[in-house]
Design a protein around this nucleic acid. Sequence first.
RNA 1: GUGGGUGUAGCUCAACGGUUAGAGCGCUGGACUGUGGCUCCAGAGGUUGCGGGUUCGAAACCCGUCACUCACCCCA
Length: 418
Amino acid sequence: MIRGIKGVKDILPDEAPRWQVIEGAARRLSSLYGYREIRVPVFEVTDLFARSIGASTDIVEKEMYTFQDRDGSSLTLRPEATAGVVRAYIEHNLGASPTPQKFFYLGPMFRHERPQAGRLRQFHQYGVESFGSTSPQADVEVVSLLWRFLSELGLPGLTLEINSLGDAADRLAYKAVLLDFLKQHEERLCQNCRRRMGTNPLRVLDCKVPSCRTATEGAPKLTDHLAPASLRHFEEVLAGLNALAVPYLLNPRLVRGLDYYTLTTFEVTSQHLGAQNAVGAGGRYDGLVEALGGPKTPAIGFAVGLERVALMLPESALPGRAKMIYVAAFGQQGVPLGTRILHELRARGLQANTDYRSATLKAHLRQADRLGASFVLIAGDDEAQKGLLILRDMTSKEQQEIPISTAAQTLATRLASA
RNA sequence: GUGGGUGUAGCUCAACGGUUAGAGCGCUGGACUGUGGCUCCAGAGGUUGCGGGUUCGAAACCCGUCACUCACCCCA
């Protein structure tokens, strides 16, 4: 038997409705906030990801699905979508537009990691990107859209944490201060963090090892080392969130994994997930467009892990089943009659179904029950003979004879009133 | 990449190293000759993940391997 690839899952029909609800909310809210859909390719030139996400990040170093094209060039399945959206933004000169460029996307991403609860190799994200504005109001819009999306789906136990990483200069200055501090406490840090001191000292603050946490307790805070402009931006973002009553927690240790973030960063977690408790996250990336060869353009966005959303989606968020008519056709003349009436119902736009394997009325009714039919149209030889059909209401068990010619019309009105 | 847990019927799980590997649910049929759900009866369904080993005897113990899963790491 050929099996699916490790960490790559089928979404079966039983589960598809959950996804439709989630994607529907994403589309509806995005357009409500003025974000238009953009569809970028699932694979790009490898260099794009290396340059945007950061060459020394885990994603780029060991998690990308990279392969050689026939001409020898290196291609990669996207581990996230921001890089591709930015590439498209630059390539099509979308910044030249007089209107703000705000996009959303939905689709699969690929990272070669060991799968676990809420982490797959092919997973799906919903995300938005807002280009062109340095205004804190843009930050507030993006964060509040993320918050609204998650809370409107009724996800339990959510926490929004927020921080500011400062601009590039702030971070450079702070890194030096932080490194000084870390060196003084190096012997109390875990092996991993000692290594991180060389590669990305900010992430030492994010370490979950308890001893590291206590060691960095008194570490200088990034938010205390922001330039006045950065600080003001951050304060205005927080004020904006307050005004919209979006509940947040300040977390000076919050450091996102991708290199391109600047200023505002945020993350929403849930207690109802496993160890992978981040549902959605994002931040500002004012330097990325320029770094990828475009015009200097501020931008901010977020990404949501849809598998993680699906894991938490409450049953109450799912819609009830639509009314369906089951056609029970059996016997020499019943079967062709049933085929005809089935076609007629569907032509009228009514949901209609049958089971071609069932040869007896009993078997048909059992299937109708399982499929959740509201009504059954019985078409046996007797009915064909008399030129009528029996309409059975599956909840009340009431039956009535109706002429074949008006059957579809009758059902249409019965369903409309029900 | 590292560590733990688990692999037995379609699903959820039993079976002290000892007869022919069982149960519940589900499935098919019947009781009910053309009327679903409930009940009762019968039936179908298995390479015990795979390969080796220990043993008179292995689903069970050992080794290997694969898969799934949780966690580390990291991230959405």
